[in-house]
Nucleic acid binder design. Sequence first.
DNA 1: TGCATGATGTTCT
DNA 2: GAACATCATGCAC
Length: 222
Amino acid sequence: MGGPAPVTPIPRDFFARPAVDVAPELLGAVIEHQAPEGLVALRLTEVEAYAGQADPASHAYRGKTRRNAVMFGPPGHAYVYFTYGMHFCVNLVCLGEGRPDAVLLRAGEVIEGEALARARRATSRRAADLASGPARLCQALGIDSSFNGADVCTAGSPLRVRADGPRPGTTGRSADKAKIATGPRVGVTAAAEVPWRFWIEGAPSVSAYRPHGPRRRKLVTP
DNA sequence: TGCATGATGTTCT
DNA sequence: GAACATCATGCAC
């Protein structure tokens, strides 16, 4: 008795749809990681949809590989990948049944466990920067490759996603009332014209879109 | 305040 | 061998 409050994750059916439909509805939802050292929960403020094998920017575009195998599995699981030699990013698998849609979690605001999130991200001075970016979000939550394939729809799972219920006594910003904006995805060159990035208008944790120029390769003269 | 660049390793061609 | 769904830093103004 008197244990932690029961957690009701979002039902798996919610994810059994195209990522483009799921992504905007995930804004305002809460992802939380119950680690041995504590709990960190954050409200999602920025996501991107990746439309499986029809989307040139998707990791699943070229078919199933060892890395993206989780995307081809059942919906409601986490697809965690390692990139740029030092960062993790996390997606939530949608559709399923061999249709590898996914939603990339790009940013969120910490609503529980801020002390732990700050400890994990010593470089962040501002609270809004704790999970402002896909790799920062993973770092704040303590997500690494061991969470690849984790089920986020099970109450007992250390990593789960729940809808943001009404929160009496707070400002209660929710996706229902907040304005949702859309735009091009960040850091992808393929299908750059598709506005499949969704964020909560005005959320301080959302990083501004940087139309960064082409990355100049290191000039190597053999 | 804003941009240019190095760090660093896995994956795929 | 090259690309990569990035981040933090350093320097110019």
